[in-house]
Design a protein around this nucleic acid. Structure first.
Lengths: 193, 193
DNA sequence: ACTGCCATGTAACGAGTTACATGATTTC
DNA sequence: GAAATCATGTAACTCGTTACATGGCAGT
């Protein structure tokens, strides 16, 4: 139940139409909560039905017409409630780590090119974050409200830094022993506890 | 489409029943790909129907009876294929970062206790990973096939390390200025690009 | 008029979640 | 033989994804 709250946050930062939101979800908030336009329209409909947001009265209810939404007091209250509510961390799910684990069983053949590609993608993302930091958060100049945004951006930077380092290490692992099949199964259950 | 491959990996490491798999998904593979027993039974059914695994012939097709599965050659081939296939990284989704971003808009009131709780949870997880490393991967003694497992475990350790550090930093941010509401909206779109 | 883009949607599906149901085995 | 536990499974629902549909507007 996070998408509605992501949308409320985005709309509080700036009232927008569905398509505008979709574009904003390609950056900014979308960096840590992605959504497609179909999800966004569906959720905008629900939020409006629940009285948390409303379409600005620009009087165009037609189909291909732009609709701008703003957050109502009830929406702001709901967002504040959700922000403060305790939530358990979601169990991890990372495909790449799963693939490496699988490679430990069936061999690493063919894996290296995609690891290189991932490394390049993470490098790009890191550079993008660093550019945003350079532009929006000059050293020691954060207003109190911007501190939190900066903190969130730092998380993105540090995570991308981790992945680039880890992938580099993984690729180094491949350099020495050529990737091969490790046999046909049955092992000692290492790491199972 | 990752759960079936997680299961294939687990079954190659050791043939198991549905419940055994469920327990193993609470640790080990479950550290980076979680699954409930309902998901696992459903997926075991599909994998068997597709001829990638089979129930070991212990002749108990009854309802409350244990069924052990093993991977067939076709299953191993499919896992190898999937491991080597290129896959785009999933877009990030992190509730905690989203909440911090929301807090930058509606205020940080009530958030601190849950951040402390998360910090404690990540500390615990980190300790668990470190214990596994100490026990299963003594320094400089990795067999070639264990190198990959160790690498995956290192990713877990480094990620948990990151979160504990980041949460500590976030909490420090709260210490100085008391959490308050940052006004009623409308801002400059900082960090939007 | 035609093409292309902007903007909002519908439909169908698959993966994950939650609650519940049922048969078998062990323990007292 | 009642209760607890082990083991497998059903049903209903939500969220996210993919493919497609429809209406309006701008340029040529």
């Amino acid at each position: 139940m996070s998408l509605p709250h992501a949308i409320l946050t985005a709309l509080l930062e700036r009232p927008s139409s569905g398509l505008e939101l979709t574009r904003r979800f390609d950056k900014s908030i979308g960096y840590f909560w992605s959504a497609t336009h179909q999800q966004i329209y569906r959720e905008l409909g629900r939020l409006e039905a629940e009285g948390l947001i409303r379409a600005l009265p620009a009087e165009q209810p037609a189909r291909g017409q732009r609709k701008n939404y703003e957050v109502l007091p009830a929406g702001r209250a709901e967002l504040a409630r959700w922000t403060a509510a305790a939530q358990d961390p979601k169990p991890q799910r990372d495909v790449l780590l799963l693939r490496l684990r699988a490679a430990a069983v069936v061999g690493t053949a063919g894996l290296e090119p995609d690891l290189r590609r991932h490394l390049e993608l993470h490098r790009r993302q890191l550079a993008e974050y660093q550019e945003i930091e350079r532009r929006d958060f000059p050293p020691d100049r954060d207003a109190p409200r911007d501190r939190l945004r900066h903190l969130v951006l730092r998380a993105g930077i540090d995570l991308e830094t981790f992945w680039t380092q880890w992938l580099t290490q993984a690729l180094a692992e491949f350099a020495e022993p050529p990737g091969q099949d490790f046999g046909t199964g049955e092992d000692l259950g290492t790491g199972e506890e």
